[in-house]
């Protein structure tokens, strides 16, 4: 017996099992790898946007003389210049700036909830989760308004060669430019908005669990961290959507 034990010395290296080489739990690792796969989806969208944009002519005149036409890809700040309550006023990118601020703020309140979770401070976790839910819902509301405005269009619309005027955009006609511009707007911001919506649902679920003391009894608030990872990823995607759809 003593001979066999000397031969079967257990391996204790980092990758020999029985420990956590990445010092992160299974759930957290799987969230990371899920987010990585999600990044592939959004990369596919941005690639499509780049190719579709290149396939169309760029506008070559001065920005002041810009008009909507299916001949060229629109300048984003001429499309996204509306603000709720200021009908017909030209405020380029102001509403998108507000939406960006709301989402960054929601990210901050999310980290604060995670930090409170580390301290096992149930009240603080609840408070910061509620703020995050509020900012997330506000972002969704803003997006709903933006979509409504984009779909219903401006008073001027786009004049066609036959004299008729198009107002707003859908998947087939688009007053702001080539139909593909509207399609990509709906798909990219819509896919991101779906992620925000799922995030808000997850946040409400963990908020209910926190209030019921589920995580306190479990001894850790790791679920808040996992949902936090997802929420920050949604913020990250918005940073890229903002740059490639609204700025470039």
């Amino acid at each position: 017996m003593s001979q066999t034990t000397t031969f079967e010395q257990p391996n204790t290296g980092t990758w020999d099992g029985g420990n956590e080489p990445f010092k992160a739990s299974y759930g957290k690792l799987m969230m990371w790898f899920f987010l990585l796969s999600d990044a592939f989806t959004f990369a596919a969208f941005l690639t499509t946007y780049g190719l579709a944009r290149h396939r169309h002519h760029a506008y070559e005149g001065t920005p002041e003389a810009f008009t909507f036409s299916t001949q060229w890809w629109p300048i984003p700040e001429k499309v996204f210049n509306a603000f709720p309550g200021f009908h017909g006023v030209d405020w380029p990118l102001a509403f998108v700036a507000l939406m960006t601020m709301i989402l960054i703020l929601s990210s901050v309140t999310m980290v604060l909830a995670v930090e409170a979770g580390h301290r096992m401070d149930k009240n603080d976790v609840q408070k910061w989760l509620l703020w995050t839910i509020l900012f997330g819902s506000m972002f969704l509301g803003c997006q709903a308004w933006e979509w409504t405005h984009f779909i219903s269009g401006t008073d001027e619309g786009m004049k066609l060669a036959n004299g008729s005027v198009i107002h707003g955009a859908n998947l087939i006609v688009n007053q702001y430019g080539p139909p593909l511009f509207a399609d990509l707007f709906f798909f990219i911001t819509g896919f991101h908005g779906t992620h925000v919506f799922s995030g808000v649902v997850l946040l409400i679920m963990i908020f209910i669990n926190t209030v019921n003391g589920v995580y306190h009894r479990r001894g850790h608030y790791e679920m808040v961290e996992k949902v936090g990872l997802y929420w920050h990823f949604v913020d990250l995607v918005w940073v890229f959507v903002f740059t490639f759809f609204y700025l470039v």
Binding site: F22, A24, S107, M110, V111, L236
Partner: peptide, 16 residues
């Protein structure tokens, strides 16, 4: 900054 600080990746193990 979002991935490093908010998602805490800067403070994870090198392997991750």
């Amino acid at each position: 900054y979002i991935v490093g600080e908010f998602m805490h990746l800067k403070h994870e193990t090198k392997g991750l």
